[in-house]
């Protein structure tokens, strides 16, 4: 694992800010440009530290797979935010040409092999990709991201057993935001109900299970990095539970065409009436927390932080403008046989 020098720390902060600003723009699109985003979006605000801390461990050739809450990963990997926003707006220059949308971002050129829109189903796919890495034998590692809810899917159990048995080079990163849409973990998970961390599940597969504060990018970097080093050495997989708080609702409201979409308040408030829980999470927001820490330790001058924020602001202005101006794909493109079959 590489030491995090100041440049790298600032890079991490910048990526966190880019993800946050991007997700803010997605959310604002519902107000500023009604009707432009269709279907369902899921935002990563609150999980930026976990995403960036994890991805900062990646070496060339490493790969990842994720869930439908997927905007953050390609942003940190360097995919053009214009093409990501255009995809979410369903436009022709979108990352997937408008075929996938918010839940199905893919950028294989950067190691992002894709997502599944179905809870837990990306876990075996990431495991298969790790088998591919093992077969190539070049020390590459796969990061498999999923949520706390996915750990009750059979796919989780089957995959972790196999990865442990075959010592596959994978780090399972469970982003535990404590909610399955609007169900709290202790309502659906026997370990959570017992007050235990979900990383204890790793014991059933004789693999290490670690819980880390997903709001602290350096802690995530160190934890995922140690697990990736272990995987790279051929010692097998690790389950990392990264505890995050999703700062938006699960997704925008689901409504029939014609009804304007928007983001409701977080389920802590709408379902459980617990505004204090949500406000406490806002007070612990990982993005300003990391900025303050870098400023305090002298890694980042406040003026530079403001400049970065301005640059990110302009980048996302451009992304939104590009996506709004980009044409829709020709309807006939839906019948492209070469996309149905390779």
């Amino acid at each position: 694992m590489q030491e995090l020098d100041n440049d790298r720390l600032v890079w991490m902060f910048t990526q966190m800010l880019r993800i946050r600003e991007f997700e803010e723009r997605v959310k604002r699109t519902f107000e500023d440009h009604p009707g432009v985003i269709r279907g369902h979006t899921h935002l990563a605000d609150g999980a930026e530290a976990s995403i960036v801390g994890s991805l900062a461990t990646m070496a060339p050739g490493d790969q990842l797979m994720a869930t439908y809450r997927c905007h953050g990963y390609p942003i940190a990997l360097g995919t053009d935010t214009k093409s990501i926003m255009a995809e979410i707006y369903g436009r022709k220059s979108g990352l997937c040409g408008g075929y996938g949308g918010s839940m199905h971002l893919v950028d294989p050129s950067r190691g992002f092999l894709g997502t599944s829109g179905i809870v837990g189903q990306g876990i075996p796919q990431a495991t298969g990709a790790a088998w591919g890495a093992q077969l190539r034998g070049q020390g590459q590692v796969v990061l498999g991201f999923f949520g706390d809810g996915a750990s009750k899917q059979g796919a989780f159990h089957e995959s972790l057993n196999l990865a442990s048995l075959w010592k596959l080079p994978i780090v399972y990163v469970m982003e535990n935001n404590n909610y399955n849409v609007s169900t709290r973990s202790e309502q659906e998970d026997a370990n959570a109900a017992n007050g235990e961390p979900l990383s204890v599940k790793a014991a059933a597969y004789s693999m290490p299970g670690v819980t880390v504060d997903g709001g602290d990018p350096i802690a995530v970097y160190e934890t995922v990095g140690a697990a990736a080093d272990r995987a790279r050495k051929g010692e097998g997989p690790t389950l990392v539970e990264s505890k995050v708080y999703r700062l938006s609702a699960h997704g925008n409201i689901i409504a029939p065409p014609g009804v304007p979409l928007h983001y409701p308040e977080h389920e802590a408030i709408t379902t459980f009436g617990n505004r204090e829980e949500y406000e406490a999470a806002l007070r612990g927001d990982p993005v300003p927390r990391f900025r303050a820490r870098l400023v305090e330790q002298g890694a980042l001058a406040p003026e530079r932080a403001d400049e970065i924020a301005q640059e990110v602001h302009e980048e996302m202005d451009a992304a939104v403008k590009f996506a709004l101006d980009d044409p829709y794909p020709e309807p006939e493109a839906a019948a492209r046989a070469d996309f149905v079959y390779a």
Binding site: L113, L135, L162
Partner: peptide, 27 residues
């Protein structure tokens, strides 16, 4: 490495095939 016996885990077996294929193999 290339010929393996797997547990009774169909979701993982088929899901892994998808992942292998995405990563350039032909399972």
């Amino acid at each position: 490495e290339r010929v393996r016996v797997s547990p009774i885990s169909e979701t993982a077996e088929i899901g892994m095939a998808v992942g292998l294929a995405l990563a350039g193999y032909r399972p």
